[in-house]
Nucleic acid binder design. Structure first.
Length: 296
DNA sequence: GACCCGTGGGA
DNA sequence: TTCCCAAGGGT
């Protein structure tokens, strides 16, 4: 029988109330102004993109499109351009699709129901629950990479978590406080700890509120090995070519480029062709008699 | 579950 | 310079 899980919530919640960063989407006026839409947009941008970079883009996005209907009224190309260099431009496309779905199926209102949120394009287990919890105050496990690392270290005594799994949701749920509001803070606090203190490299255990009950620390910080898949090299990759091709479409003065002119100087012509084809397949580009452009 | 998808800052 | 990694999701 494993030990009973220690109480992570009490110290984490107390720590968060004292040390939480002042981020835009945590401010009361942000929620008053943009509601669930603001939270949804911020969570979309935060998918695999560092917090500091998102901060520089969120205000402009919401000022331009303060409601889902505002975004849905414009072509996908506008979303992809506004997305700029946030990375993974499919997210801009999916956010636009979600806005259309919100307008057509939900009266332009971001639903509070997790299953309804999960049905929207680009919203998975994390984002659906983040919206339900941080915008609507519900009690659900919000599990991101930071949460998984904190649980792996504090409860399992491992340096790194295994690959993401739905089991993580049940584990997080088991350590959430019973009260809805406390559970929401616990979710945010666990992510915050992973982002600021219990970091992937060089964790700052000296300032950790749960160091006393951390099993990884108690075991002497064993290197249990990183079970995650290693990220492929970007330079010279297909993704690199795709990124360059999309950028040329984004920045095109007339918003349209002859296909032959798209990253024409790319060193690997076959890779260039794959990049353009994959953009078309993904819906990030479309052809109009020999010309290429963002989706209208 | 494996693999795919960008971009830039920090160590 | 090179490598790591970042509030994930779709296929």
């Amino acid at each position: 029988m494993p030990d009973r899980s220690p109480d992570l919530a009490t110290p984490l919640v107390a720590w968060y109330r004292e040390h939480a960063r002042d981020l835009p989407w945590r401010r009361a006026e942000f929620h008053e102004r943009y509601g669930g839409w603001g939270v949804l947009v911020s969570e979309f941008m935060l998918q695999q993109t560092p917090t500091t970079r998102v901060i520089g883009h969120l205000d402009a996005w919401l000022a331009r499109w303060p409601t889902p209907a505002d975004l849905a009224a414009e072509p996908p190309a506008a979303a992809v351009r506004q997305w700029a260099n946030l990375g993974y431009p499919r997210r801009a496309l999916w956010l636009h699709r979600a806005a259309v779905q919100l307008r057509d199926r939900h009266g332009g209102i971001v639903p509070a129901d997790v299953d309804a949120l999960l049905a929207l394009t680009g919203i998975g287990d994390y984002t659906a629950r983040a919206v339900a919890v941080f915008s609507y105050g519900q009690r659900h496990p919000v599990v991101d990479t930071n949460t998984r690392r904190v649980l792996a270290r504090s409860l399992d005594g491992r340096a790194q978590p295994g690959p993401p799994s739905r089991r993580d949701l049940a584990r997080m749920c088991a350590v959430l406080p019973a009260d809805d509001a406390d559970a929401a803070v616990m979710n945010a606090a666990t992510m915050e700890l992973g982002a600021v203190v219990c970091t992937a490299r060089a964790p700052r255990c000296d300032s950790c509120p749960i160091a006393q009950l951390c099993r990884w620390r108690a075991r002497g910080y064993p290197d249990t090995g990183d079970l995650r898949r290693k990220q492929a090299r970007y330079e010279g990759s297909d993704r690199h070519a795709r990124g360059a091709a999309l950028r040329s479409l984004r920045d095109a003065a007339g918003h349209t480029v002859a296909i032959d002119e798209v990253i024409a100087d790319w060193p690997d012509p076959a890779q260039r062709d794959r990049a353009i084809d994959s953009l078309i397949v993904d819906g990030l580009a479309e052809t109009v008699d020999g010309m290429l452009r963002l989706p209208q």
